[in-house]
Design a protein around this nucleic acid. Structure first.
Lengths: 143, 143
DNA sequence: CTAAAACCTGACATCAACGTCAGAGGCAAG
DNA sequence: CTTGCCTCTGACGTTGATGTCAGGTTTTAG
């Protein structure tokens, strides 16, 4: 397939695909007229690249690791394996931090809800003193 | 405290602190001569801002949410609560994606290790045919 | 054949979160 | 008062991934 189709199928812009090639993350066979052609395998590869980007890896780091993906031979696998382990740990730490931040957000939301509830109750008290019920349980969805 | 101390205690550069104020994420009382002064509370606030940044939120988004942190009143809490829930979900999806990426990295590492092991075994076979044992089980640590 | 659509290279633009520098003023200690 | 350190504003530089545009070639549809 040509670059437009790859872009459409991966959701990545044509510009980015060319940039990936420029950075050595992606290769293409060229037709005689110089147009890039890709195989099905490149679809998955581009998606993986995107996920590594989303994981916070730089293109430099990705290009360090991707050869290891292509040809898991002994030449690269020794040094690159350590590099991968290192990046994996960074990623793991990052995940932990994000989870803690999510927990903090949950805490804030709970506080905000509590404030809202208390105000709603105050309104109701002002409206009619001592209402029996009529309001369904204040469903506070969990994590 | 003045800005230098806040920077030292949070590990954030002086430049960044001024930038935060410029973006409306942080406020300071000014001395007559115009110097910024902060209280202890700002230390925690800066750390929280950092974590939101690390969670991938933009300064714009953070400034949308932080008022809700400051004054959890009904004025902001209604719209901002939805915003927070939305960001929380984005964060959650992001975390899931990172976990999947980490799993993918684990898979790659396992593959690389397998290749290395097989080569090591090949070497040993070439060295002496039919060794009984002596190699402990090829420990492939799990996620 | 011809026009539209897709592609090429190369270059400059953008955006966010900073770094860095210049020039000027504030503040405590000697 | 001077020396040294901290702070101020304002402006320009940086980096990485990408947008965008120009000017030209190739492919495709009619």
């Amino acid at each position: 397939m040509r670059i437009g189709e790859l872009a459409a199928r991966t959701g990545v812009s044509v510009r980015s695909l060319r940039y990936y090639e420029e950075q050595g993350l992606l290769t293409s066979s060229r037709s005689v007229s110089g147009q890039r052609h890709y195989t099905e395998a490149e679809v998955e590869r581009v998606r993986f690249i995107q996920r590594l980007y989303a994981a916070g890896l730089s293109s430099r780091t990705i290009s360090d690791l991707l050869p290891c993906v292509d040809t898991p031979s002994e030449g690269n696998s020794d040094a690159a394996l350590e590099r991968m382990a290192q990046e994996r740990n960074r990623l793991s730490e990052h995940i932990d931090e994000l989870v803690r931040t999510r927990d903090a957000l949950d805490g804030l939301m709970a506080t905000a809800r509590a404030h809202r509830e208390s105000e709603v109750l105050a309104h109701r008290v002002r409206a009619r003193r001592g209402s029996g019920e009529g309001t369904s349980a204040p469903r506070v969805p969990e994590s």
